[in-house]
Amino acid sequence: MDEIIFLVNKVVISGAVLGSIYALGAIGVTLIFGILRFAHFAHGDMMTMGAFVAFLLAALVGAMGITAPVPLAFVVLPLAVVITAVLALLIDRGFYAPLRARGAKPVTLLIASIGVTLMIQGLIRLVFGSGTRNMYLDIEDKIIFRMDFGWLGGTRPLVLSQPQILMFFVTLACITGLHFFLTRTRMGKAMRATSDNLDLAQVSGINTQQVVTVTWLIAGSLACLAGTMLALDVNLRPDLAFNIVLPIFAAAIVGGLGNAYGAIAGGLLIGVTEALAVFNWTAVLRPFAPYLPFGMELPANLALVPTEYKLTVAFVILVITLLWRPTGIFRGLST
């Protein structure tokens, strides 16, 4: 029983947590690619930016002496989301829209987004320094839920932290909301239409400028949510999401660029695969040790990939997907 709990803790929960973050980021990347046809590399730093916005607001609210049963950074999320969405739109107007107007190639926009990444990173560190911060204010505790499985013969608890539970709810709410938006609303359908066939969308009289605006607002909002939830789960650092921007791209590409549902599946797939790849099977196989043939014993570490190479798992998946099926496992768009 302990072995199963261990597996759930290490693979299912941590894989799903990571996968949710990847999914939220990948949806933004994939929507932007669908509408604007370029790989928005600055998406990771937009997530970090959103987390810092939430942090600032939480600190402000906290300074006013307000407290809540959930972390303040979570309480202020709606406002932080609005601010980040507007910032995302301003970034587009300032740095990408002029290039689009000139008819720049997708790769030029990709390089421009690297420029934006550097500016966001530089500014965040200029203002906040390079140190690590706790998203939980001093007076708040990170609540950890331990579920006891003693009645099933387990001695170890199933561990879930408060931010992880919040994250699952937020991800679920985002996905449902997005699904409703894309399939039921006029604007959402127009977004899908634009992503499907930009020329025809224009010919139909769809206001593609408006679609672009809405895309940035949604991508910015999701980035803020993902960044803040990630920062609540781990810690707030200036390189919070820059380090995971490649797994996010991997998720979007695996899911098929332009395909929001594919991005969700891709995110979870990569999150769980990463967790599985570094999982130490020895712990689970220990009960079978007595049955091993004479002279054999279980090695201390039986992980498929050493932990220090964890990051490479996503890249390997990314590269293999690009080579084997560049349009993604769930057919995506081609430019």
Binding site: F95, G115, V116, L118, M119, G122, L123, L126
Partner: peptide, 21 residues
């Protein structure tokens, strides 16, 4: 000290943006 070291990251990003535009 540590903050001004980051200035160059921002300047680099700005230079890319200006150059591309």
């Amino acid at each position: 000290d540590s903050r001004s070291l980051q200035m160059r990251v921002f300047v680099l990003g700005l230079v890319i943006s200006i150059a591309l535009r």
